[in-house]
Design a protein around this nucleic acid. Sequence first.
RNA 1: GCGCGGUUAGCUCAGUUGGUAGAGCAACUCAUUUACACUGAGAAGGUCGGGGGUUCAAGUCCCUCACCGCGCACCA
Length: 732
Amino acid sequence: MDDKLREKLLKPYDPKETEERIYKLWEDSGFFNPDVCIEKGITEANAKPFTIIMPPPNANGRLHAGHALFVTLEDIMTRYHRMKGDRTLWVPGADHAGFETQIVYERKLEKEGRSRFEMTPEDLYKEIYDFTITNKKFMEDDIRRLGASCDWSREKFTLDPDIVKTVQNTFDKMFNDGLIYRGDRIVNWCAKHQTSLSEVETEFEERTEPFYYLQYGPFVISTSRPETKFGDKYVVMHPKDERYKEYKDGQKIDLEWINGPITATVIKDESIDMEFGTGVMTITPWHDQVDFEISERHNLEKEQIIDWKGKLLPIAGEFTGIHISKARTKIIEKLKEKGLLVKIDESYKHNVKVCFKCNTVIEPQIKDQWFIKMRPLADKALEAVESGKIKFYPENYKKIFQYWMTNTIDWNISRQIVWGIPIPAKICITCKKGYSDLKDELKKCTCGSELIKDTDTFDTWFSSGQWTLLALGYPDTKELDIYHPTDVMETGRDLIFKWIPRMVIFALYLRNEVAFRNVYLHGLVNDEKGEKMSKSKGNVVNPIELVDIFGTDALRMALVVGNTPGTDLSLSRDRVKGYKNFANKIWNATRFVLDNTKNFTVSETPKYDEEDNKSDEELKTLMEEITKEMDEYKFYIVSEKLYHYFWHTFADIIIERSKKKILASPVGSGPRENKNADSAKTLLYTQLNMLLKALHPFTPFVTEEIWSMMPATNKNLLMVEKWPAPSADKTC
RNA sequence: GCGCGGUUAGCUCAGUUGGUAGAGCAACUCAUUUACACUGAGAAGGUCGGGGGUUCAAGUCCCUCACCGCGCACCA
């Protein structure tokens, strides 16, 4: 160790001075790329591959604490496997995040007093593109600062031209296989964002609203939404309901309704709950999922009542053009005047479906959209999970996956937004038939009418669902044959619905194999009080800020120690601070070890005294234990054990004990130097060496920095040194 | 309504196939020129949510109740 290093070691560990330099060292070495590792003889050419595809962060802002957690966990796995000699690949990426990003951008426009509806689609696209590319760079810098050892040379963006092309090809293939159809179906319509949404993009909000009982001819019907009732001309009841047995299915009844006399038709349907309300209801097939299904069963007419902006159509008569949010009280007034209002129940509690971004009430609408037939695809996914080809950590998420896949409904992949991958399709202007048209060459529909280009874009999950394949170069199979199926998909537990099933489905469909063998789901990162971080609460923790104060290694430990998969974590500054102390503890212990092993060569066949021998065995046992736990994804326990061993055994016991032995026999004191000093020195050096390696995946910066000071010969970067214990199970 | 998870030390959480309760942080006592105050030593702290059952033995398995959290579904 030269004087410069010695001088550095005398001061406390300084992450600020260290991290950027070390990261550059790693990146310049090329070892993030498994090909380079093989080329340089670090990894065997026939080594078993280990692959993680990074969940591509949305390129619309900086990283949050959840990102820091996933980077940490995935980097731990990656570094561990690289050190074990696997052909280890971690592919980074960035997601254009369709609707999400467009909303972020629309908020920005709103602040500037602009609106997307006043812009050409081309201008809007260009602006969002520039915005995204800028943010993508920030995001990548943040990932580097967290120490991610991912292969940047393979980085992918979901709007890369080849990815766009592949995604469109998938649409074409599914269309030709009959798995995608164009259909008039009920969609979730957000009137603010002017787009349809999938089920996962809506939420329920509990509301207490008045519940109205209305006289409908001889019946009393109940509704929470009188403003949709203008076109109701079917009155439905259960076929076994004794109260209404005098009315026959298909019977016509003339009655007075909101805007005058109408003829209603009686429909008997078993879906009616006889216990609810009066057991009779009228239906609005255009604006309600259940009503839509009833009307499909009985082949009833459907009519649109509310337009795409949320205003009443001419069917509403004098109420035409009024926004539904304002129409209700007016309509109730009129019903009251006409004597049709029976009573109002003021405390009716029910759930209202709202847009997950703006909380606007979702207006179900019948819309011509592209849908994916989920049943056949979901069945294959279920089979893959049931046969154990995909394992979940924690295990109970398997059940959630199965539930979701069993109850899946057809997936609407059309979005009426600009920011996304265009759907390569044509629609007939007359009969509305849809065609996949990759080459933009179709002109006429089979009905003879003209075709126009579909202006919609894909739901972002349509492209990110193919991510394990796209990130590895699909449709080119060169890399896929090596690295796919990937080993682990590590992501937030909230993505068990949104993302995981779609990746499973697409990989099975396109490549007939699972997308990943293991799914590791982490919980949310909450604030120190355990409350969910949110901008409105002002309790959002910026991980990079914590890195600035305490260092990356400290943050990583704080995120991983004791954090079991699937469980939420409370992240406090004190927690991070504690691990900053740990990094410094490693640093100081190193100073002691290096000071006391100067000019000392560790024997290849070390001879320990009795207690040192016991300590040697103890650490070796620990190494075997943690290796097993690493293979079981128990990083929460491995990190804790290493922390505990380093601090309370290595530092508190072994170092303290060595003081007596070494001080009792000063260096260079010739014959007086007893073998207990050698034993102590050997143990100090050997254990530090081993602990640095074992700690490296968790605290990569401080361990790498210290490694550079270790006097070993033939030394490489610590990141590619051999992990200090073999796996019990070679297949892990 | 259906389902899932949780309830263990003041706080945050571990606890593997049942075998005398663990860690971190906080608090307490003492020490401290000696790698490290970003420190050390020590002590303290829990009828493992309630009740019942299986067992030689239950934090762990079964039943039941309560409370907290989450997800899904329906709601005319």
